[in-house]
Simulated assay, not measured.
Amino acid sequence: MGHGGNVIDELTTDHREVEELFGRIEALPPGDGQRKTYAEQATIELVRHSVAEEEYLYPAVRKHVPGGDSIADKEIADHAEVEQVMKDLERCEADDPEFDRLVGKLMAEVREHVRDEEENLFPALRASTTPDELDQLGEKVRTAKKTAPTRPHPAAPDTPPGNKLLGPGAGMVDRLRDALSGRGKS
């Protein structure tokens, strides 16, 4: 959940962890119950990651990167699409035919989003901010992930101040539900 380093290093490490979970899903045969477990773990990580980006990364992109408003708006729209797929996936068991379609769609959308961030957004942010600002953003992102929700909430606000006000409360409820149900545990 928290890796250390500047915001780009932190988020890139998150990307690699989610890709590892996707690889585990792909390695298992359709209908295998462990696919659902890995999909839940990926969802937890993706939701935390997205919330932290929406709270801190995208406001910084708006402030520092030329054309940052349109970049941030596109990234937030990508998040909304992925969040809806995760919400739909939440209702499926691994042996449901819809599970395979949705998990495939999730992986494709996330992989495209990651590619875009790593090839375009991250270099633009690095070029327009100082190393100290990137380090400070990294710390803010790590802190945000600790209290972020772990389940998709497509109707929740995705920009400040609404997301910063409501996110920690939703996160607390989600973590309680996860603890009671065992969701996200290997």
Rank of each mutant, 00 (worst) to 15 (best):
E90Y: 14
P161F: 10
H64I: 09
S181K: 15
E55L: 07
D14Y: 05
E109Y: 11
E112I: 08
A144F: 02
E20I: 09
A179K: 15
L180M: 15
E45Y: 09
P97W: 13
E20T: 13
A170Q: 12
A127R: 14
T129R: 11
E109K: 12
L46G: 01
Y38R: 06
V7Q: 03
P123M: 12
S181G: 14
I44H: 05
L137I: 05
E10F: 06
K140A: 08
R35P: 00
K145G: 01
G182M: 15
I8P: 01
S70P: 00
A42C: 07
V85Y: 05
C92L: 06
F99P: 02
G33P: 04
V103D: 00
D14W: 06
A60S: 13
A170L: 14
R177C: 11
A72Q: 05
T159K: 11
Q136L: 10
A60I: 07
L28N: 00
E117F: 06
S186H: 15
L11Q: 01
L134N: 04
N6C: 04
D73H: 07
Y56S: 03
Q41M: 15
K140Y: 08
A94K: 00
E55V: 04
P154H: 07
T37M: 11
D69S: 11
E19K: 15
D100L: 04
R126A: 15
P154T: 01
G184K: 11
Q84N: 11
H64K: 15
K105H: 08
V61T: 06
S70C: 07
D174E: 09
G31M: 04
D158F: 05
P149W: 03
V51G: 01
S70W: 10
P123Y: 12
E53M: 08
E133Y: 12
G5M: 06
M86F: 15
L125Y: 11
T37N: 06
R183V: 07
A148L: 04
P30R: 15
F122K: 07
G33A: 10
R142M: 12
Y56E: 07
A144N: 03
A148F: 02
P157Q: 03
G2P: 00
V114M: 10
A52S: 06
P160D: 06
M172T: 11
I71Q: 06
I25Y: 00
I44W: 08
K36F: 05
V173P: 01
Y58M: 09
I71K: 06
G167W: 00
T147W: 06
A144Y: 04
D88N: 09
E53V: 04
T13W: 09
A155E: 14
P30H: 05
E54I: 03
V47P: 01
A155F: 13
P161D: 07
K185S: 15
K36T: 00
N120C: 09
G182D: 10
E40V: 14
G31Q: 04
G171D: 02
